[in-house]
């Protein structure tokens, strides 16, 4: 293991020892100590989680999956048939009991993912969900007015393009396979992966044409 954000972890621990914490922090501290004492919680799993998620695992994994699908039609077919199995080919674990479904954008269809209930998200390929993904506003409006949401993200999707909204659950998560942009013929997978943004894999971005996103 390398690259742990040990400073962040140390800071988190240090914070807890420096002064009387705010009330919710005190409650979390009490809960953790109680659960560890009763043998219900392994403190090592708590530390491991904090290490992983302060390091941010994604969304480079998802970008690698997309680039591979763009350059390997057989992989793309397997990915669309069974996302959970296909990502293991790249060394990315799925998660026990949960499934990944990859939905493909085409010239006629745009896909958008949301979790209307809470914040279910394909962590194993996209890492950490952005703040807006968990807001009540996004969770409600992605379903009610997806075209309006996309416009706010700077994507004016023509009326001729159907928008499909996928509601994630704890058991089934979605990832969008964006369209490969024109002008990238001959690019290798690493170059292509650099074009793929997290928002494109959530569906709040659509056009990955090189250079387009850099101005905004």
């Amino acid at each position: 293991m390398s690259g742990h954000d040990s400073h962040t972890i140390a800071h988190i621990h240090e914070e807890l020892h420096s002064h009387l914490p705010p009330e919710p922090a005190l409650r979390v501290k009490a809960l953790e100590s109680l659960l560890v004492e009763k043998g219900m919680l392994d403190p090592a799993t708590v530390d491991a989680w904090i290490e992983v998620f302060t390091e941010e695992i994604g969304p480079k994994r998802g970008a690698a999956v997309v680039a591979r699908a763009w350059t390997d039609p057989d992989f793309k077919a397997r990915l669309l048939a069974d996302g959970t199995a296909a990502i293991t080919e790249l060394g990315f674990d799925g998660w026990a009991g949960g499934h990944l479904k990859v939905v493909e954008n085409t010239p006629d269809v745009h896909n958008l993912i949301v979790c209307t209930l809470c914040s279910c998200y394909p962590h194993s390929v996209l890492g950490i969900p952005p703040n807006w993904y968990k807001t009540a506003a996004y969770r409600a409006r992605a379903v009610r007015d997806p075209r309006g949401v996309l416009a706010e993200f700077g994507e004016d999707v023509p009326e001729s393009v159907a928008i499909r909204v996928w509601d994630s659950t704890a058991e089934l998560r979605y990832m969008v396979l964006p369209e490969r942009p024109a002008g990238t013929e001959g690019w290798d997978a690493a170059e292509l992966a650099d074009l793929v943004t997290r928002n494109a894999m959530i569906g709040t971005a659509r056009d990955l044409t090189p250079g387009k996103g850099e101005a905004g």
Binding site: S119, Y121, P129, N131, A170
Partner: peptide, 8 residues
């Protein structure tokens, strides 16, 4: 599948 909110 339990993960934090992140910065944008």
């Amino acid at each position: 599948g339990i993960a934090p909110r992140a910065s944008d």
